[in-house]
């Protein structure tokens, strides 16, 4: 197994509708045991990329191989078998609102294993302890703050010790303390369980702190890649722009739109110009 990449994406293109491609010719690899960061600004297609890896969406072109399987060619059974070896942390947590925190974390153990209840209970408490929420085991998701919910979701995602972890924005909405803890936890889990991980984030500092390798995505393409050290030293302007957080640079801050002046003056786009005006005041 060692040596073969866990995830191998080769020149993948994808668009939700034909008119507007989201990803164009993206290639990336995740080596076994490594933590790979995918960075890019909001709406550049990071979540879409994770969905392709999880077999949620099928790429229009290119090859997606995950854990030795060609994702695009699997039937639903094969996909389920593959997903049992994967864990995913959703951008918004996606906890089951009709179950307690405990039951949420226990969910996969109960669905996929025949472990006795006492053992499940022990395992769940271990996972919750790791994210610092053992005391919240009997709470309902509605009673948790956003950051707590994210941590529970993390505990749930790693419940069955998956071989590949996909983290969608694990850091947003966390206070600095939890943020540091979660970042280290992602790294520790990865190393102690022999996992491989993909971390999608736009938080440069936290991400650079834990990943081995980073891909920068912009306008649906990989525009830069390398180890954090290489990228910090990179002279490429978009990397500098992203690392320093500037609006001006090669990465456009605006979603593609017709000319601003045209929208403000235009008669046919009444509602959109109103919205723009409100946005300016807001």
């Amino acid at each position: 197994m060692a040596g073969l990449p866990v995830v191998e994406i080769d020149k993948v293109s994808f668009g939700y509708d034909a008119a507007r491609p989201v990803l164009q010719g993206v290639s990336l690899r995740v080596e076994p045991g490594s933590v790979v960061g995918i960075m890019g600004q909001s709406g550049c297609g990071k979540t879409t990329l994770l969905r392709l890896i999880a077999g949620w969406l099928k790429a229009g072109a290119g090859a997606t191989r995950v854990l030795g399987e060609s994702v695009g060619e699997l039937d639903s059974e094969g996909l389920f078998a593959l997903r049992r070896k994967m864990g995913m942390l959703f951008q918004f947590g996606a906890l089951f609102t009709d179950m307690t925190v405990f039951d949420n974390v226990a969910f996969q153990m109960r669905e996929h294993t025949d472990l006795p209840p006492e053992l499940i209970s022990d395992l769940v408490m271990m996972k919750l302890e790791a994210v610092g929420l053992r005391g919240a085991a009997q709470m309902m998701p509605a009673e948790l703050s956003g950051g707590m919910a994210r941590r529970v979701a993390l505990a749930r995602a790693v419940a069955l010790d998956p071989r590949l972890m996909l983290y969608d924005e694990p850091f947003t909405g966390l206070d600095p303390i939890s943020l540091g803890v979660i970042a280290r936890l992602i790294r520790t889990l990865n190393d102690s369980l022999g996992q491989s991980s993909i971390v999608v984030s736009h938080d440069v500092e936290e991400c650079f702190g834990i990943v081995d390798y980073v891909y920068f995505v912009s306008a649906g393409q990989i525009v830069a890649q390398g180890t954090p050290a290489e990228l910090r030293g990179s002279a490429a302007s978009f990397v500098q722009q992203f690392v320093r957080g500037e609006a001006d640079g090669p990465i456009p801050f605006h979603y593609p739109a017709p000319g601003y002046q045209a929208d403000l003056d235009g008669e046919e786009t009444q509602s959109s110009s109103l919205a723009t005006a409100q946005a300016c005041h807001g």
Binding site: M88, A94, F107, Q108
Partner: peptide, 19 residues
């Protein structure tokens, strides 16, 4: 209930957990 589970990605999360 089912609609909200879908809107809050709970259905997606379940599929992701191979259920």
């Amino acid at each position: 209930e089912i609609g909200l589970m879908k809107a809050t990605e709970q259905i997606a999360a379940m599929e992701m957990m191979a259920v």
